[in-house]
């Protein structure tokens, strides 16, 4: 469990990136921080592994104040995946994945063996192991990045817009892969994105941020859609644009789902129609 207690961050240039931020990020769940640029989402993420230290307030991981932990040791215990993968260009794929275990003193042979197994986990062919990052596609690089993030089997995985720089098809693939991985591995994932669709897909808990690290609303995707706290949230989740305000229309013999702009959104799947009164899930 990660807890933010009234955390603020003012950068030396005077910008207040985060103001009085308090939040509990439950264990074994994916919390997604969503906001546009300037919302402080990346700053919040980086505070968790002390890449950024708060100006005031405290952050606890499982009840322990991280300000008391040496940053280098803390970081070696937390998985980190960033945009553009951040792989070391001068190390092969297998050595990139083994980076943190090697830093922690795992014998080289063991670390490499584990790294190869991790390539399987993230769906990469082992034949790529001896390549350099520049010889991989963007999607493959991100997978290596994820494998590296998982290499020490951390409880916490921080992901900073990890799929932001790959094309939409690969992104969708990687997102599904992450959903599958998370089912298997059950990590505490903190995920930063500006893409609300991605947030809805991946998040158990979604935090919508306003400029300056202010929380607009926290909730499950269903809660945010059904009860947006204000116009800002409504606009962010797309409820106001009518894209998610759906209704049924009868076309001939078929029921089709139409959004409020009159665009066809899809059909109802008869096999999944709820018998009882609609639960919150049906809002998706």
């Amino acid at each position: 469990m990660i807890e933010f207690h009234s955390v603020s961050k003012r950068f030396p240039d005077g910008t207040l990136a985060v103001a009085d931020f308090s939040l509990v990020l439950p264990s074994h769940q994916t919390t997604v921080l969503v906001g546009s640029s300037g919302s402080g989402k990346t700053t919040l993420l980086r505070m968790i592994n002390r890449m950024v230290d708060p100006t005031s307030g405290s952050i606890e991981i499982d009840g322990e104040d991280i300000a008391t932990l040496p940053p280098v040791k803390l970081r070696r215990g937390i998985g980190y995946v960033m945009q553009n993968s951040g792989l070391l260009p001068h190390r092969t794929v297998v050595d990139n994945v083994a980076t943190v275990p090697l830093l922690r003193g795992t014998p080289k042979r063991q670390a490499r063996q584990d790294a190869l197994a991790l390539l399987d986990t993230v769906g990469l062919d082992r034949s790529l192991a001896t390549r350099y990052p520049s010889q991989l596609s963007g999607g493959q690089q991100q997978r290596v990045g994820v494998a590296r993030g998982l290499a020490v089997n951390p409880n916490i995985l921080l992901m900073d817009e990890p799929f932001g720089a790959v094309d939409p098809i690969v992104r969708a693939e990687l997102q599904q892969e992450l959903v599958r991985l998370q089912d298997e591995l059950d990590k505490t994932v903190v995920f930063v994105t500006h893409d609300i669709e991605e947030a809805f897909l991946l998040g158990d808990q979604i935090v919508i941020l306003r400029e300056g690290g202010l929380i607009a609303q926290v909730g499950s995707p269903a809660e945010l859609l059904a009860n947006p706290a204000d116009d800002f949230v409504a606009s962010f989740v797309g409820a106001d644009r009518g894209r998610r305000a759906l209704h049924l229309e009868r076309h001939g013999d078929e029921d089709v789902v139409v959004d409020s702009d009159g665009r066809l959104a899809g059909v109802l799947d008869p096999s999944r129609r709820p018998a009882a009164p609609a639960g919150p899930e049906s809002a998706r």
């Binding site: 040791k73 970081r75 070696r76 993968s85 951040g86 070391l88 830093l103």
Partner: peptide, 9 residues
């Protein structure tokens, strides 16, 4: 790369 190296520990 520099930043990610720091983040790795």
């Amino acid at each position: 790369v520099r930043q990610s190296a720091s983040a790795m520990g």
